[in-house]
């Protein structure tokens, strides 16, 4: 993966594959604390302790093509966080869901760029119309706090039976998410 927004996309795909009906994503950047934090919580099928261990192990693969449940995605993300004096935690409960947190030292020389969060978010929430997404971005600079929130539950309530792939809806989502994220100045870190 070339940037953190692509790792985020990979994690979102895991959550949807686990059958999540709600995925909460929070991204926090704090210049004072020099921290960049990604948190993804889902209410999908969750994992038992063994499966979770396997998910964190880069050498694990069941490789039976479609039976394959975990791969390199999580270990690579974990490695990237740990390389940057950060940390990585996954907690999961079978039948309840999975919470994942990746923390990076923001100024670390090896920290990957954030990349296009907007592209990850726009594609995911339109491409998984049956899943609800709640996104919150907080960027705490030294003298200001920028925030952006997007909740597809609000969007869907207003739209009723109009699909998210209706052209004007795509335009609406693209504009809102692109501008919203741009205004947090997250893309620049």
């Amino acid at each position: 993966m070339q940037d953190l927004s692509l790792h985020l996309l990979d994690i979102i795909e895991n959550s949807t594959r686990a059958g999540a009906s709600l995925i909460k994503i929070s991204i926090d950047a704090d210049e004072k604390k020099d921290v960049l934090k990604f948190k993804i919580e889902d209410n999908g099928s969750g994992m038992d302790a063994d499966t979770l261990n396997n998910a964190l192990n880069p050498f694990y693969t069941s490789k039976e093509s479609r039976e394959k449940k975990v791969g390199l995605g999580i270990p690579l993300f974990m490695q990237n966080a740990e390389l940057c004096e950060g940390s990585f935690h996954v907690t999961s409960k079978l039948g309840k869901g999975t919470d994942l947190e990746a923390i990076f030292k923001k100024s670390h020389i090896d920290r990957m760029p954030v990349g296009s969060l907007a592209d990850t978010i726009i594609g995911s929430l339109i491409g998984h119309a049956e899943t609800d997404f709640y996104l919150k971005i907080t960027h705490n600079t030294r003298d200001e706090v920028f925030e952006y929130e997007f909740d597809t539950r609000v969007l869907k309530e207003e739209l009723g039976d109009i699909p998210l792939t209706y052209p004007d809806v795509i335009q609406y989502i693209m504009e809102d998410v692109n501008n919203g994220i741009k205004n947090t100045k997250m893309g620049e870190i």
């Binding site: 795909e13 479609r66 998984h128 119309a129 792939t165």
Partner: peptide, 8 residues
């Protein structure tokens, strides 16, 4: 059209 993405 409907567009979706899948990891499968």
């Amino acid at each position: 059209v409907v567009v979706s993405q899948t990891g499968e």
